[in-house]
């Protein structure tokens, strides 16, 4: 899931204070799980903004709403018209949601972010989130016992630990496990330690995040959708 944290309230206030009619528009998927931007958090943020506006003597209407996902068009449809009646949408969805909605509104009204999108992570325990995938586009977890050295090793090393590994911890912080220590221990348990003897060549980063937005296109599904649309149009005639 995507993990994010709500921006400091003062930063949010400085973004929204000049607007008269604001919608705090939450997303009930990932950011609801990390208590940053679901329907509940949107309601709370809207309430806090109303109270702040009252304290500061600013005449402002702040409402809240939430939909299940901010990254697919269908979910937006029921509220589309209503959303366009606002001066500003404050979106505590992830960065994907903010981009997606801003593209959808196409400059009609601004969409501002309510959270800082942090990483792709897991929830090992309630209230604790940890980054587990870097989205590098070229997965090698089968070589490393299911532990990602790209994102869990501070240096993204591919061939074992650096000299900074210290009793299972990383030199960057004693709160951070050494990913390569974890990998070796995991591979021992799996009985596949000898796989690590194979030297990994320099990595091809062309699948990474530095070449513009990446895309995945499922041609069979797109072809099917096109066919369905054509059929519907023919029947309509």
């Amino acid at each position: 899931m995507i993990v994010g944290q709500q921006k400091p309230f003062d930063e949010i206030w400085s973004m929204v204070r000049d607007f008269k009619k604001v919608l705090v528009y939450g997303c009930n998927t990932c950011v609801a799980i990390c208590h940053a931007g679901g329907g509940k958090e949107a309601e709370i943020l809207a309430s806090m903004l109303r109270m702040k506006a009252a304290q500061e003597g600013v005449d402002m209407q702040v409402d809240s709403a939430a939909i299940e996902r901010h990254c697919e068009p269908e979910f937006f449809e029921p509220l589309d018209e209503k959303v366009r009646t606002y001066d500003l949408v404050l979106s505590p969805a992830c960065g994907v949601g903010v981009n997606f909605l801003a593209d959808r509104l196409a400059g009609a009204i601004p969409v501002y972010p309510g959270i800082n999108t942090s990483f792709y992570g897991g929830v090992p325990e309630a209230g604790f989130f940890v980054e587990l995938c870097g989205g590098c586009g070229n997965c090698i977890l089968h070589l490393t016992g299911g532990i990602c050295p790209i994102v869990r090793c501070s240096k993204s090393l591919m061939n074992g630990p650096c000299g900074g590994t210290n009793n299972g911890k990383c030199e960057v912080s004693d709160q951070t496990d050494c990913a390569w220590y974890l990998i070796v221990e995991r591979m021992k348990k799996l009985g596949t330690l000898e796989k690590l003897l194979e030297v990994q060549p320099p990595r091809d980063w062309s699948t990474g995040t530095h070449g513009g937005p990446r895309r995945v296109s499922l041609e069979h599904i797109r072809a099917y959708e096109e066919k369905e649309e054509k059929n519907a149009a023919t029947e309509g005639k």
């Binding site: 919608l23 809207a46 109303r50 009252a54 005449d59 209407q61 702040v62 409402d63 709403a65 939909i67």
Partner: peptide, 17 residues
């Protein structure tokens, strides 16, 4: 169905204590 929770009360500047 998604819906907008509109503020039930709005505090106009003139009434702020």
């Amino acid at each position: 169905m998604a819906d907008v929770a509109e503020a039930t009360e709005r505090t106009p500047v003139s009434t702020i204590e």
